[in-house]
Design a protein around this nucleic acid. Structure first.
Length: 163
DNA sequence: GCCAACGTTGGC
DNA sequence: GCCAACGTTGGC
């Protein structure tokens, strides 16, 4: 995707629902997106702008797929768990002066009326170039506007207006 | 639970 | 800077 494409950009965020589900985010209103320990995913987090929309994807469940929408509530800041030796996400190479890992906050927007499964996405020709299909393991991904809108449509949802 | 794909580390 | 070894993700 060209870097000069106009804002807003669109995103896909993966979470295991056993860890943090769309229902958890709905309950919380705004939630932390932390624990990312992969450099490309982190770099994507750092590109995300407040107000931009993301597809909320449930991974490692049956079936996997997009279940709803959220938006960036707070842009990237240092993930405190990297400094905490007690945390699963502790990184001994990170220091307060030179943090390695970032997190964002996201705000709940909506559930899609129907989940859009990975199977469905793979079966939709216009979605064949999605990062989700091409680089399955990346947990924070860019999505084109067209892909975003197509998935919302497949899920029977409506595009949220404004910020 | 398996295992393919792929990201990261570290020796050279 | 390459690449083998190793670790992790995530669909199935």
């Amino acid at each position: 995707m060209p870097e000069d494409r106009p804002r807003p950009w669109f995103w896909l965020l993966k979470s295991e629902p056993d860890t943090y589900s769309i229902d958890d985010l709905k309950r919380d209103g705004t939630g932390p997106w932390d624990g990312v320990r992969n450099f490309s995913a982190r770099n994507r987090l750092r590109e995300m702008k407040r107000g931009e929309l993301a597809l909320f994807y449930h991974s490692s469940t049956k079936p996997t797929g997009v279940v709803g929408l959220c938006r960036v509530a707070k842009e990237a800041y240092p993930d405190p768990s990297q400094f905490d030796p007690e945390s699963d996400y502790y990184d001994p190479k990170a220091t307060e002066e030179k943090p390695r890992w970032s997190m964002i906050d996201v705000r709940y927007v909506s559930h899609l009326p129907q989940m859009v499964t990975l199977e469905e996405i793979k079966a939709t020709p216009e979605l064949g170039e999605m990062v989700l299909v091409k680089r399955a393991r990346l947990s924070v991904q860019p999505v084109t506007r067209e892909e975003f809108e197509r998935i919302v449509e497949l899920g029977g949802g409506t595009l949220p207006k404004g910020k």
